[in-house]
Nucleic acid binder design. Structure first.
Length: 298
DNA sequence: CCCTGTCAAGTCACG
DNA sequence: CGTGACTTGACAGGG
């Protein structure tokens, strides 16, 4: 089991998701920003390796405006060597990488313009991972998308769209249950028609359940990942104390986390900890997981 | 330095 | 109809 965190390291003084306003776009500006972002990404990976953290989500802002028409420079060629270095670091440390496009990528939208921008955005993600030389176990996680007043039709539209995706995208996309529309069971239906692996978000499953217990859901999702996809990925977060929908906790509650882990035994997976204090929470639970023989899975 | 209005993009729930 | 929430708040202009 590898445990990781998304996008941002709060301890290091750098950020790998720096961006800027579209109004101030220039090739110079974007090149400078990408270079800084890649430098920082390498620094974060080195930090992770030093602390035995081997799962990380790369920010979609690594190349700002990459899918926007304003972006004309060939960032793959320009930063090939730097991106390969990232991939080499990932491989050297036996790390796992994921990405999670923003809410604007909606593959099942009935709107052709939204579909176009979604395709450009998803292709940016897959080209970035490919430029790093990462194998297909580096995943891009998306939701089914909107309901548009007809959930069945909208789910079927996702299936059609998925089938027409280029292979470079199909080999990396994974489908995640969301917190209000599409449950794990809905995602599993899509899997049945497409083969897309299903990523389980434990909190979404709590808020928008399928009737399955957590461990049942883990088992069902695990079966959708082939060898080439790598181990099942799982998103774990805790709600902020006051209990409003959505908001993530500021730091991990270690007892609750341990109970969560016990409740998923004996399944193995790579775990993304979505907590505000990022790597600090991973550092808190890492030693517990490493020390406890019950969690020495696979 | 600090303050704050605003930021490429979608969808949905809430008031 | 306007606003906030979502995987990650940060930029940029003005005081």
């Amino acid at each position: 089991m590898r445990i990781g965190y998304p996008c941002v390291n709060v301890m290091l003084g750098c950020r790998s998701n720096r961006h800027f306003r579209l109004a101030s776009y220039s090739e110079r500006r974007v090149v400078d920003t990408v270079r800084e972002n890649l430098d920082c990404l390498l620094e974060i990976l080195r930090f992770n390796a030093d602390h035995d953290i081997r799962f990380f989500r790369i920010s979609s802002d690594l190349v700002p405006f990459a899918s926007h028409s304003v972006c004309q420079f060939d960032w793959v060629s320009r930063f090939r060597r730097e991106m390969e270095k990232v991939g080499e670091a990932v491989d050297a440390y036996n790390m796992r990488i994921s990405m999670h496009p923003g809410q604007f990528a909606v593959l099942n939208s009935p709107d052709g313009g939204v579909l176009d921008s979604t395709m450009r955005e998803l292709l940016y993600h897959s080209r970035l991972l490919a430029a790093m030389g990462l194998d297909p176990s580096a995943k891009i996680q998306v939701h089914v998308g909107g309901v548009y007043g007809d959930k069945e039709k909208s789910l079927l539209r996702f299936i059609e769209r998925y089938r027409r995706l280029p292979a470079e995208l199909r080999q990396r996309l994974v489908l995640e249950n969301d917190d209000r529309s599409y449950t794990v069971r809905d995602c599993l239906r899509v899997h049945g028609h497409t083969g897309v692996p299903v990523l389980l978000d434990a909190l979404h499953h709590e808020l928008n359940g399928s009737g399955d217990t957590l461990v049942e859901a883990v088992a069902l999702c695990a079966a959708t990942w082939r060898q080439v996809d790598g181990p099942l990925m799982l998103d774990y977060s805790q709600r902020a104390g006051s209990g409003r929908r959505g908001g993530h906790a500021s730091t991990v509650d270690v007892d609750r986390f341990e109970r969560f882990l016990e409740s998923t035994l004996p399944f193995d997976f790579d775990l993304m900890l979505e907590i505000k204090d990022k790597e600090q929470s991973v550092l808190k639970v890492g030693p517990i997981v490493a020390r406890d023989p019950r969690f020495q899975r696979a």
